[in-house]
Protein backbone atom coordinates (compact mmCIF):
# COMPACT_ATOMS: atom_id res chain seq x y z
CA UNK A 1 0.00 0.00 0.00
CA UNK A 2 1.46 3.34 -0.92
CA UNK A 3 1.31 6.12 1.64
CA UNK A 4 -1.15 8.98 1.03
CA UNK A 5 0.65 11.27 3.42
CA UNK A 6 4.32 11.16 4.32
CA UNK A 7 5.73 13.37 7.02
CA UNK A 8 9.46 13.47 7.47
CA UNK A 9 11.11 15.23 10.40
CA UNK A 10 8.82 18.28 10.40
CA UNK A 11 9.89 21.10 12.71
CA UNK A 12 7.92 24.31 13.28
CA UNK A 13 8.85 27.26 15.48
CA UNK A 14 6.73 30.19 16.49
CA UNK A 15 7.78 33.56 17.80
CA UNK A 16 10.91 35.66 17.50
CA UNK A 17 14.44 34.31 17.94
CA UNK A 18 14.73 35.28 21.57
CA UNK A 19 11.40 33.74 22.51
CA UNK A 20 11.07 30.66 20.37
CA UNK A 21 8.36 28.13 20.99
CA UNK A 22 8.69 24.79 19.34
CA UNK A 23 5.27 23.72 18.13
CA UNK A 24 6.47 20.63 16.29
CA UNK A 25 9.83 19.09 17.04
CA UNK A 26 10.81 16.61 14.35
CA UNK A 27 7.71 14.65 13.55
CA UNK A 28 7.75 11.74 11.10
CA UNK A 29 5.06 9.24 10.16
CA UNK A 30 3.15 7.96 7.14
CA UNK A 31 -0.55 7.60 6.56
CA UNK A 32 -1.62 4.84 4.20
CA UNK A 33 -4.12 5.26 1.42
CA UNK A 34 -7.70 4.81 2.55
CA UNK A 35 -6.72 4.90 6.19
CA UNK A 36 -8.60 6.67 8.97
CA UNK A 37 -5.71 8.07 10.94
CA UNK A 38 -6.21 9.85 14.24
CA UNK A 39 -3.91 12.38 15.86
CA UNK A 40 -4.72 12.43 19.54
CA UNK A 41 -3.31 15.05 21.81
CA UNK A 42 -4.23 17.70 24.32
CA UNK A 43 -4.70 21.38 23.40
CA UNK A 44 -1.41 22.94 22.35
CA UNK A 45 0.14 19.63 21.31
CA UNK A 46 0.76 20.93 17.79
CA UNK A 47 -2.14 19.27 15.98
CA UNK A 48 -3.34 22.38 14.15
CA UNK A 49 0.19 23.41 13.15
CA UNK A 50 0.70 20.01 11.57
CA UNK A 51 -2.61 20.28 9.72
CA UNK A 52 -1.80 23.74 8.45
CA UNK A 53 1.55 22.55 7.14
CA UNK A 54 -0.04 19.61 5.36
CA UNK A 55 -2.78 21.78 3.84
CA UNK A 56 -0.15 24.24 2.49
CA UNK A 57 -1.26 27.10 4.75
CA UNK A 58 1.93 27.14 6.78
CA UNK A 59 5.57 26.52 5.96
CA UNK A 60 7.52 24.11 8.10
CA UNK A 61 10.90 25.34 9.33
CA UNK A 62 12.51 21.99 8.70
CA UNK A 63 11.62 18.67 7.14
CA UNK A 64 9.38 17.74 4.26
CA UNK A 65 5.96 16.32 3.74
CA UNK A 66 3.96 14.99 0.83
CA UNK A 67 0.23 14.67 0.37
CA UNK A 68 -1.02 12.28 -2.28
CA UNK A 69 2.52 12.06 -3.60
CA UNK A 70 2.98 15.84 -3.97
CA UNK A 71 5.42 17.90 -1.97
CA UNK A 72 3.56 20.42 0.20
CA UNK A 73 5.88 23.27 -0.72
CA UNK A 74 6.68 22.64 -4.37
CA UNK A 75 3.33 21.35 -5.57
CA UNK A 76 1.01 23.22 -3.25
CA UNK A 77 -1.31 23.97 -6.14
CA UNK A 78 -1.85 20.28 -6.82
CA UNK A 79 -2.54 19.63 -3.17
CA UNK A 80 -5.09 22.40 -3.04
CA UNK A 81 -6.97 20.65 -5.83
CA UNK A 82 -7.10 17.29 -4.14
CA UNK A 83 -7.21 17.91 -0.42
CA UNK A 84 -10.29 18.67 1.62
CA UNK A 85 -9.71 20.70 4.77
CA UNK A 86 -12.08 21.34 7.61
CA UNK A 87 -10.48 23.79 10.06
CA UNK A 88 -11.16 23.53 13.74
CA UNK A 89 -12.96 26.82 13.70
CA UNK A 90 -16.14 27.02 11.62
CA UNK A 91 -15.03 29.03 8.64
CA UNK A 92 -17.76 29.00 6.06
CA UNK A 93 -19.66 32.12 5.09
CA UNK A 94 -22.12 32.71 7.89
CA UNK A 95 -24.21 35.10 5.84
CA UNK A 96 -24.70 32.68 2.98
CA UNK A 97 -27.25 29.88 3.16
CA UNK A 98 -26.39 26.20 3.48
CA UNK A 99 -27.07 25.66 -0.20
CA UNK A 100 -25.13 28.74 -1.31
CA UNK A 101 -22.08 27.74 0.69
CA UNK A 102 -22.06 24.29 -0.81
CA UNK A 103 -22.60 25.63 -4.30
CA UNK A 104 -19.84 28.21 -3.82
CA UNK A 105 -17.26 25.65 -2.78
CA UNK A 106 -18.31 23.28 -5.51
CA UNK A 107 -17.83 26.03 -8.10
CA UNK A 108 -14.44 27.22 -6.97
CA UNK A 109 -13.22 23.64 -7.22
CA UNK A 110 -14.58 23.59 -10.75
CA UNK A 111 -17.20 20.99 -10.08
CA UNK A 112 -20.92 20.83 -9.33
CA UNK A 113 -22.97 19.51 -6.44
CA UNK A 114 -24.64 16.97 -8.73
CA UNK A 115 -21.35 15.43 -9.82
CA UNK A 116 -20.27 14.42 -6.34
CA UNK A 117 -23.62 14.27 -4.64
CA UNK A 118 -23.18 10.56 -3.90
CA UNK A 119 -20.28 11.42 -1.61
CA UNK A 120 -22.15 13.81 0.60
CA UNK A 121 -25.65 12.41 0.23
CA UNK A 122 -25.81 10.66 3.61
CA UNK A 123 -24.61 13.78 5.39
CA UNK A 124 -26.38 16.37 3.30
CA UNK A 125 -29.79 14.71 3.73
CA UNK A 126 -29.59 15.56 7.42
CA UNK A 127 -29.12 19.27 6.81
CA UNK A 128 -31.19 19.51 3.66
CA UNK A 129 -34.35 20.63 5.53
CA UNK A 130 -32.38 23.77 6.50
CA UNK A 131 -30.80 24.46 3.14
CA UNK A 132 -32.34 27.93 2.90
CA UNK A 133 -31.05 28.85 6.34
CA UNK A 134 -27.96 30.99 6.77
CA UNK A 135 -24.96 28.98 7.89
CA UNK A 136 -24.44 31.25 10.89
CA UNK A 137 -27.87 30.30 12.22
CA UNK A 138 -27.21 26.54 12.30
CA UNK A 139 -26.57 24.56 15.48
CA UNK A 140 -23.04 23.37 16.23
CA UNK A 141 -23.60 19.83 14.97
CA UNK A 142 -25.25 21.09 11.79
CA UNK A 143 -22.37 23.43 11.14
CA UNK A 144 -19.94 20.52 11.38
CA UNK A 145 -21.99 18.53 8.89
CA UNK A 146 -22.14 21.42 6.47
CA UNK A 147 -18.41 22.02 6.81
CA UNK A 148 -17.77 18.35 6.11
CA UNK A 149 -20.00 18.53 3.03
CA UNK A 150 -18.11 21.57 1.76
CA UNK A 151 -14.77 19.86 2.36
CA UNK A 152 -15.96 16.80 0.45
CA UNK A 153 -17.76 18.38 -2.47
CA UNK A 154 -14.75 18.25 -4.80
CA UNK A 155 -14.12 14.56 -4.09
CA UNK A 156 -10.79 15.03 -2.33
CA UNK A 157 -8.43 12.08 -2.12
CA UNK A 158 -7.22 13.19 1.29
CA UNK A 159 -9.42 14.74 3.91
CA UNK A 160 -8.01 16.79 6.79
CA UNK A 161 -10.33 17.22 9.74
CA UNK A 162 -8.98 19.41 12.52
CA UNK A 163 -10.84 18.71 15.74
CA UNK A 164 -14.15 18.12 13.99
CA UNK A 165 -15.93 17.02 17.14
CA UNK A 166 -14.79 19.70 19.55
CA UNK A 167 -17.80 21.48 20.98
CA UNK A 168 -20.27 18.99 19.55
CA UNK A 169 -22.67 16.99 21.71
CA UNK A 170 -22.10 13.29 22.41
CA UNK A 171 -24.80 12.07 20.02
CA UNK A 172 -23.56 14.21 17.12
CA UNK A 173 -20.01 13.08 17.82
CA UNK A 174 -21.02 9.47 17.49
CA UNK A 175 -22.90 10.23 14.27
CA UNK A 176 -19.91 12.09 12.94
CA UNK A 177 -17.61 9.12 13.43
CA UNK A 178 -20.15 6.89 11.74
CA UNK A 179 -20.02 9.23 8.74
CA UNK A 180 -16.23 9.07 8.67
CA UNK A 181 -16.34 5.29 8.61
CA UNK A 182 -18.64 5.44 5.59
CA UNK A 183 -16.32 7.88 3.84
CA UNK A 184 -13.45 5.51 4.39
CA UNK A 185 -15.26 3.00 2.23
CA UNK A 186 -15.05 5.51 -0.64
CA UNK A 187 -11.28 5.13 -0.40
CA UNK A 188 -10.72 8.62 0.95
CA UNK A 189 -7.73 8.93 3.25
CA UNK A 190 -8.77 10.75 6.38
CA UNK A 191 -6.47 12.47 8.84
CA UNK A 192 -8.42 13.55 11.88
CA UNK A 193 -7.30 15.22 15.07
CA UNK A 194 -9.10 15.18 18.36
CA UNK A 195 -8.40 15.95 21.99
CA UNK A 196 -10.86 13.22 23.06
CA UNK A 197 -9.11 9.97 23.91
CA UNK A 198 -12.30 7.94 23.67
CA UNK A 199 -12.47 8.68 19.95
CA UNK A 200 -9.12 7.02 19.33
CA UNK A 201 -10.76 3.62 19.22
CA UNK A 202 -12.65 4.63 16.07
CA UNK A 203 -9.45 5.14 14.05
CA UNK A 204 -7.44 2.57 12.13
CA UNK A 205 -4.25 3.92 13.59
CA UNK A 206 -3.52 6.72 15.99
CA UNK A 207 -0.57 8.92 16.80
CA UNK A 208 -0.35 10.27 20.31
CA UNK A 209 1.00 13.80 20.16
CA UNK A 210 2.27 15.72 23.15
CA UNK A 211 4.08 19.12 23.06
CA UNK A 212 5.18 18.67 19.47
CA UNK A 213 6.48 15.13 19.89
CA UNK A 214 4.93 11.85 18.91
CA UNK A 215 4.71 9.53 21.89
CA UNK A 216 3.45 6.50 20.05
CA UNK A 217 1.98 5.42 16.73
CA UNK A 218 0.01 2.21 16.48
CA UNK A 219 -3.46 0.76 16.10
CA UNK A 220 -5.63 1.53 19.11
CA UNK A 221 -5.34 -2.09 20.23
CA UNK A 222 -1.62 -2.04 19.66
CA UNK A 223 -1.24 0.99 21.88
CA UNK A 224 -3.22 -0.68 24.62
CA UNK A 225 -1.11 -3.80 24.31
CA UNK A 226 1.99 -1.75 24.89
CA UNK A 227 0.64 -1.08 28.35
CA UNK A 228 2.22 -3.92 30.28
CA UNK A 229 1.56 -2.96 33.87
CA UNK A 230 -1.27 -3.87 36.18
CA UNK A 231 -4.03 -1.32 36.42
CA UNK A 232 -6.66 -1.02 39.13
CA UNK A 233 -9.71 1.12 39.55
CA UNK A 234 -10.08 2.13 43.17
CA UNK A 235 -12.81 4.03 44.94
CA UNK A 236 -14.05 4.75 48.43
CA UNK A 237 -16.20 7.44 50.00
CA UNK A 238 -13.08 9.45 50.91
CA UNK A 239 -11.62 10.05 47.48
CA UNK A 240 -9.13 12.81 48.16
CA UNK A 241 -7.27 11.29 51.10
CA UNK A 242 -7.34 8.01 49.17
CA UNK A 243 -5.55 9.60 46.19
CA UNK A 244 -2.95 11.19 48.43
CA UNK A 245 -2.25 7.87 50.11
CA UNK A 246 -1.97 6.14 46.75
CA UNK A 247 0.50 8.69 45.47
CA UNK A 248 2.90 8.15 48.35
CA UNK A 249 2.64 4.34 48.25
CA UNK A 250 5.97 2.80 47.22
CA UNK A 251 4.38 0.04 45.13
CA UNK A 252 2.31 2.49 43.10
CA UNK A 253 3.82 4.04 40.00
CA UNK A 254 1.01 6.47 39.21
CA UNK A 255 -2.45 7.31 40.48
CA UNK A 256 -4.90 9.75 38.98
CA UNK A 257 -8.58 10.67 38.89
CA UNK A 258 -10.60 8.78 36.35
CA UNK A 259 -14.32 9.56 36.52
CA UNK A 260 -15.76 8.08 39.68
CA UNK A 261 -12.62 6.00 40.31
CA UNK A 262 -8.92 6.49 40.76
CA UNK A 263 -6.79 4.60 38.32
CA UNK A 264 -3.75 3.08 39.95
CA UNK A 265 -0.76 1.85 37.96
CA UNK A 266 1.40 -0.62 39.86
CA UNK A 267 5.15 -0.79 39.60
CA UNK A 268 5.26 -4.59 39.55
CA UNK A 269 3.00 -7.35 38.38
CA UNK A 270 0.71 -9.30 40.69
CA UNK A 271 0.71 -6.95 43.60
CA UNK A 272 -3.03 -6.70 44.12
CA UNK A 273 -2.70 -8.12 47.63
CA UNK A 274 -0.11 -5.52 48.61
CA UNK A 275 -2.43 -2.77 47.40
CA UNK A 276 -5.34 -4.22 49.33
CA UNK A 277 -3.24 -4.38 52.49
CA UNK A 278 -1.99 -0.87 52.01
CA UNK A 279 -5.52 0.48 51.66
CA UNK A 280 -7.01 -1.59 54.44
CA UNK A 281 -7.69 1.53 56.54
CA UNK A 282 -10.33 2.51 54.01
CA UNK A 283 -12.16 -0.77 54.40
CA UNK A 284 -14.88 0.89 56.42
CA UNK A 285 -15.40 3.57 53.76
CA UNK A 286 -16.77 1.34 50.98
CA UNK A 287 -13.39 0.52 49.44
CA UNK A 288 -13.54 -1.07 45.99
CA UNK A 289 -10.53 -2.40 44.12
CA UNK A 290 -10.99 -3.82 40.60
CA UNK A 291 -8.37 -4.97 38.16
CA UNK A 292 -9.20 -3.36 34.78
CA UNK A 293 -8.05 -3.38 31.19
CA UNK A 294 -6.33 -0.11 30.28
CA UNK A 295 -7.86 2.25 27.71
CA UNK A 296 -6.14 4.77 25.43
CA UNK A 297 -6.19 7.47 28.08
CA UNK A 298 -4.34 5.27 30.56
CA UNK A 299 -1.75 4.59 27.88
CA UNK A 300 -1.45 8.28 27.13
CA UNK A 301 -0.98 9.11 30.80
CA UNK A 302 1.69 6.44 31.10
CA UNK A 303 3.49 7.64 27.97
CA UNK A 304 3.36 11.24 29.15
CA UNK A 305 4.84 10.22 32.48
CA UNK A 306 7.63 8.37 30.69
CA UNK A 307 8.62 11.33 28.57
CA UNK A 308 8.75 13.58 31.62
Amino acid sequence: MKPAITINNIVKFYGAKSNKTEALSGISFNVNEGELFGIIGPDGAGKTSLFRILTTLLLADEGEATVDGYDVVKYYKEIRKRAGYMPGRFSLYQDLTVEENLEFFATIFNTTIEKNYHLIKDIYIQIEPFKKRKAGKLSGGMKQKLALCCALIHKPSVLFLDEPTTGVDAVSRKEFWEMLKKLKQQNITILVSTPYMDEAGMCDRVALLQSGKILSIDTPDGIIEQFQKDLFAVRSSKMLPLLNDLKICSEVEDAYFFGAYHHVVMKHKNEEQQLKNYLSKYAGDGLEINAIRPNIEDCFMALMKNTE
Binding site: T55, T56, Y85, P87, S91, I108
Partner: peptide, 10 residues
Protein backbone atom coordinates in the same frame (compact mmCIF):
# COMPACT_ATOMS: atom_id res chain seq x y z
CA UNK B 1 -11.38 32.63 9.23
CA UNK B 2 -13.10 32.13 5.90
CA UNK B 3 -9.91 33.14 4.11
CA UNK B 4 -8.37 29.95 5.49
CA UNK B 5 -10.97 27.92 3.70
CA UNK B 6 -10.51 29.93 0.51
CA UNK B 7 -6.75 29.52 0.66
CA UNK B 8 -6.89 25.74 0.49
CA UNK B 9 -8.90 25.93 -2.74
CA UNK B 10 -7.39 26.30 -6.21
Amino acid sequence: GTIEQINVTP
